[in-house]
Design a protein around this nucleic acid. Sequence first.
DNA 1: CTGAAAGCGCTAACAA
DNA 2: TTGTTAGCGCTTTCAG
Lengths: 354, 354
Amino acid sequence: MTKHITIRDIAKMAKVSVGTVDRVIHKRGEVAEESYKKVVAILEKTGYKPNLIARALVSSKSVKIAVLLPNPKQDEYWKLSVEGIDQAQQEWAQYSLELTRYYFDLYKNESFRSMAEKVLKSAPDGIIAAPVFTEESVEFFTSCKERNIPFVLVNSNLTSPSPLSFIGQDLYQSGMLGAELLHQGQKKPGTYAIMHIYDDVHASKYLSEKEKGFRDYFKEQGDKTYEVISIDLNHTHTRTLERELMELFSNPKLRGILVTTSKGAQVVSKMLEKRGKNDIKLVAYDLLKSNIRHLRAGTIDFLINQNSKRQTFIGINQLTNHLLFRKKVVPNYLFPLEIVARKNLQSYLDSVDH
Amino acid sequence: MTKHITIRDIAKMAKVSVGTVDRVIHKRGEVAEESYKKVVAILEKTGYKPNLIARALVSSKSVKIAVLLPNPKQDEYWKLSVEGIDQAQQEWAQYSLELTRYYFDLYKNESFRSMAEKVLKSAPDGIIAAPVFTEESVEFFTSCKERNIPFVLVNSNLTSPSPLSFIGQDLYQSGMLGAELLHQGQKKPGTYAIMHIYDDVHASKYLSEKEKGFRDYFKEQGDKTYEVISIDLNHTHTRTLERELMELFSNPKLRGILVTTSKGAQVVSKMLEKRGKNDIKLVAYDLLKSNIRHLRAGTIDFLINQNSKRQTFIGINQLTNHLLFRKKVVPNYLFPLEIVARKNLQSYLDSVDH
DNA sequence: CTGAAAGCGCTAACAA
DNA sequence: TTGTTAGCGCTTTCAG
């Protein structure tokens, strides 16, 4: 019934040609003041909506998107996000979408910098990236802005050059939730630890946001009986690491640990399993293989799911929709903080998005 | 680089016309054995993928979809799903998608039946529905099958006339999770109740699946010290209801209640709040206003989110993609069982999908 | 049984 | 400054 109004209809009503109407719609000038006004008026009155399908068909130009992420081989978390890339690529297979992947070394800002340079050289129509190294990212995305290349950020955000869209979670709330999950049901006062374990020096705003939330949770508890310690272990020497962990475990007041890094979770849960769990609660992030096993076994009590796969998938989708169809994007696409426990784990593994 | 292969290319390679290729692709016969084989071979070899955009453009016929759901005014849960319809409608606004909504009385199978009839009369291209009344649904969707009208089911599934796609959760696991959330951290044996409260007689497979999971959880606990009671209250007489609840509350062994219906959750949590919560745990479903309030206040301990909005949204999307682009759909689109607690509630409310 | 041709709605190049 | 026109890739008559 509601016959769609086309550019032809507009042209007829305004007594001009479709060419003129198109010029008005896309503001590519060369239109007489008078015609312009007439067309705009009719556009408004009729509430004309362009047919995106036709628009996409005609352009039919392959949209080129660059994906700039940490090397998935280094970290299982980022391996999950690759599944999101694959899924998006499949989804858009018929629409000429060219996805090129650029993986940088998660622990070397040098690597980020050089990969970013490559991305720029390839002159993509859009970029989706994880701004792991803040300083380098600011620099890189500033040049993107200058060149008018839209970029979408996943996992963590940047304030200064603002992205077309950010996809991720509220990290502060995430830290709070981690604290709550550890503290929940515990009546005795004690010590709670938040641990970041990585391979190299690696100052990340990402982790500190979580830590702030974690600390604030215990502050809010009112009674000052909670001691919060933050542990940064930045070495690959398994020995040293194990020694430090053993020392931590031996603290009789230790009630729980929140591990923020995937490598970390693996090490800590293995050690805790060996030692016998007793009363130390453990919360980690994401549906990584080792985490799943330890959640099932009971070493890990809860996981907080960040859904790396879906973050990346949505990111590419938004960017492509923007580029191909000029659709509007959600500037701040926040994911909920998903709690995964023993009894709902299976439903996550069964679910389509996993 | 990867120049897309078109139907023209195929035609040229097979030395036939595009018409013939099209006839082969869509199996609309009238093709000589020989040409058929030739074309199929080339199709396979080249891995031809149709351009969905072009396909959608040419048909350009407005796809007509009927939405058959319970009246959102009767139940907040179904009100959420309306948001999903709205969202989908917006998303597909430019693509001539005609969505017509048919709301039936949640408590009257008669109403379902008559609405279903109306749907059939409107001769839609596809249907998305919640098969609340099993018997009537089986009948209705059987006629849909006969008429070749594809239908997508949300919330609960039907076995017999199988839908194009089902979107929902595993209800058995859901009941289990509810039980676990109640039982967790409780050491003393006791009584656990699962409650279904509705306005009218209403035998629903939906609820019984959850109940099975609930009961099985406690069976699995090994020790026989858990008593499970199931309560069906099917009246609107507030007095009687309150009396029955008071009686339940007065059972000193009662440890927790899982309420499966939205109306129920509202009543129970209000009563429990008045009485003083003490040791009775309460778990309910979905981010309904009253549930959110009581979760914040502590009367409700956990919510299990079914994400009615997204279920409906995804359902319409799948159906439209199928109808408009002939895209493949996921036959069994399972959602994870999301646990909402005090500390991650806000993230759910902030998230885009809410 | 097959090929030719007219569009679907929009864009962009080219003429006027 | 404007109008005309040739496609984008596919579907669907309509003649042969």
